[in-house]
């Protein structure tokens, strides 16, 4: 009987990132939020305290960009065979199973972060504290665009060279940003059912891209 040397997913993340899953989640959530707060504060101060100077839709764009690069950087760390530490990671307990758990967990954390942004925006809107987006449906636009982006990040793991992967990602990022802006304009004309189905479909896209990239990664990169 083969010995079971599988690690739980939180330990797999610890091995690949050197820190706990909780810290990673907090970091991935707070850094883009900090960027947004810095942006808002800067605009507010530069305009001499005029609230109307702040363009609400720009909050979504800043959050989109900052979280986009945050997710990419975190994904690169677990998926780069040309970064320091690669040989160590190939020999740890669990082997490829540990890698797969770390990769899937970081993708799941990215999805959870976006979900949290959407929930917080929705709660702030419902409680009439502040409206972070032009319309409630703008949350859906952000959600769908971010899910497409995460699916793209996962697919780009098939590119082994980190520099090429970053260049490809930057090129795709602007296309997804256009999608986000397009969706913002179509929010009012679409029913809630369409938005919900689209949101669910975007999550399915991530699951499929994750499965495909992990299988490909095992054959072409890990076992080579």
């Amino acid at each position: 009987m083969k010995k079971n040397d599988s690690l739980p997913f939180w330990d797999a993340v610890k091995v690949y990132y050197g820190t706990s899953l909780v810290r990673i989640f907090i970091c991935m959530f707070l850094l883009p939020v900090s960027a947004v707060l810095l942006f808002v504060t800067s605009i507010f101060l530069m305009s001499g305290g005029k609230e109307e100077a702040l363009c609400v839709s720009s909050i979504g764009v800043i959050l989109f960009f900052c979280s986009a690069y945050m997710f990419f950087i975190m994904d690169v760390r677990v998926n780069s065979s040309n970064l320091p530490g690669w040989k160590f990671l190939k020999t740890v307990k669990g082997g490829f199973d540990t890698y797969a758990k770390a990769a899937v967990t970081i993708t799941a954390v990215s999805v959870l972060v976006v979900l949290l942004y959407s929930l917080i925006a929705a709660l702030l809107y419902i409680a009439d504290i502040v409206s972070l987006f032009n319309t409630p449906g703008a949350c859906f636009a952000l959600w769908i665009s971010e899910m497409v982006l995460i699916a793209v990040i996962v697919f780009l793991r098939l590119i082994e060279n980190t520099t090429v992967r970053l260049l490809a990602y930057s090129a795709v990022l602007f296309q997804v940003l256009l999608l986000y802006l397009l969706l913002l304009h179509t929010v009012k004309s679409m029913s809630a059912a369409v938005w919900i189905i689209s949101a669910a479909a975007s999550m399915l896209m991530i699951a499929v891209s994750s499965k495909v990239s992990i299988s490909y990664y095992k054959k072409k990169i890990w076992e080579n």
């Binding site: 050197g18 970064l83 320091p84 530490g85 690669w86 040989k87 160590f88």
Partner: peptide, 8 residues
């Protein structure tokens, strides 16, 4: 060389 990640 580079056995562990450099920020450890």
């Amino acid at each position: 060389a580079n056995y562990f990640p450099m920020d450890w």
